[in-house]
């Protein structure tokens, strides 16, 4: 029983990180029909921005701020202006292929200019255990979970309770009408790119102490987040959250109670089942937009 609780919590913690990355996927899709196949590498890069600052002798907290700012600039603004804007006019497929190329480019640059080996990464949350109802639970897992929940709640408040949030939703749901009623659609789209950059930077800070900083660590994450977004519903932020958490828990429980050899297959199996029986995703609605 104690074990089950432990597995659940560490599954939820991993799932929360998948969810953060998956939310980015769905946001970009909703506002600009961008499927970002470099999303996994977007999680890998901030860790290296932070490490670069750390190696230059900057204190950890300042390095994190530096890493987040560089992420907002490069993975948000520059990504949109230099890659998405020129490619988007040609349709969804060219942009998907361009982001695939970007992911390869990012991995190779880290390998070339930083290191091909794994690097240790300091943790925000101290190691240790807390006692919950007589069960020892890892402080790190709980910390990751709490920080992710805070981030998602803040995002929800922004989207549903503020004027900017409403404008962003309007821009996503019907850009033409939004433009007519005076919503600066272009700027709203840029905001979603910046939010995505912020989310992946947060995911990076949370996951890298556990996974280690390595050029290839985005591959697993990108795929998991993509599956999470599809399982939950590609056009729903709350779908991405449910998909991410579900995937994290299923992966952990599957590895512990079914088979470690086939753990990689379990999320894909889930994906097939969802696509067969509920193609719009668990919480998604059938696509309304004509692209």
């Amino acid at each position: 029983m104690a074990n089950l609780l432990n597995l659940l919590i560490s599954g939820l913690a991993t799932g929360a990180i998948y969810a953060l990355v998956a939310i980015g996927f769905t946001l970009l899709w909703q506002t600009s029909q961008t499927i970002n196949f470099a999303q996994g590498e977007f999680v890998m890069m901030p860790a290296f921005f932070i490490l670069a600052a750390l190696h230059a002798g900057v204190p950890f907290w300042l390095s994190i701020i530096f890493g987040v700012l560089i992420s907002l600039l490069l993975l948000g603004l520059v990504f949109k202006k230099a890659l998405v804007d020129p490619m988007l006019k040609h349709g969804v497929l060219p942009i998907a292929i361009a982001t695939m190329a970007l992911s390869i480019g990012m991995k190779e640059s880290v390998k070339e200019f930083f290191t091909a080996e794994a690097e240790p990464f300091p943790s925000l949350i101290p190691a240790g255990n807390v006692n919950i109802f007589g069960v020892e639970v890892s402080l790190q897992s709980i910390g990751v979970l709490v920080l992710a929940i805070v981030a998602v709640t803040a995002l929800n408040l922004l989207l549903n309770r503020t004027s900017v949030g409403h404008q962003m939703q309007a821009a996503a749901q019907n850009p033409t009408v939004a433009r007519i009623i005076g919503v600066p659609v272009e700027r709203m789209i840029l905001y979603t790119f910046l939010i995505n950059a912020g989310l992946v930077a947060l995911a990076s800070v949370l996951i890298t102490p556990i996974y280690l900083a390595k050029f290839s660590s985005g591959e697993v994450l990108g795929l998991a987040a993509f599956i999470a977004a599809i399982v939950g519903g590609f056009n729903q932020v709350r779908g991405a959250i449910v998909g991410g958490l579900l995937l994290g828990v299923i992966d952990n429980l599957g590895a512990a109670y079914i088979s470690t050899q086939y753990r990689g297959a379990i999320p894909l199996f889930l994906l097939i089942v969802v696509i067969l029986f509920r193609p719009q995703g668990l919480l998604g609605r059938a696509e309304e937009r004509t692209v």
């Binding site: 074990n3 432990n6 597995l7 560490s10 599954g11 991993t14 897992s141 556990i210 996974y211 280690l212 660590s217 697993v220 992966d251 952990n252 429980l253 599957g254 590895a255 512990a256 470690t260 753990r263």
Partner: peptide, 8 residues
């Protein structure tokens, strides 16, 4: 990357 289940 993730060894939580293996260790559990």
């Amino acid at each position: 990357a993730d060894f939580a289940a293996d260790v559990a």
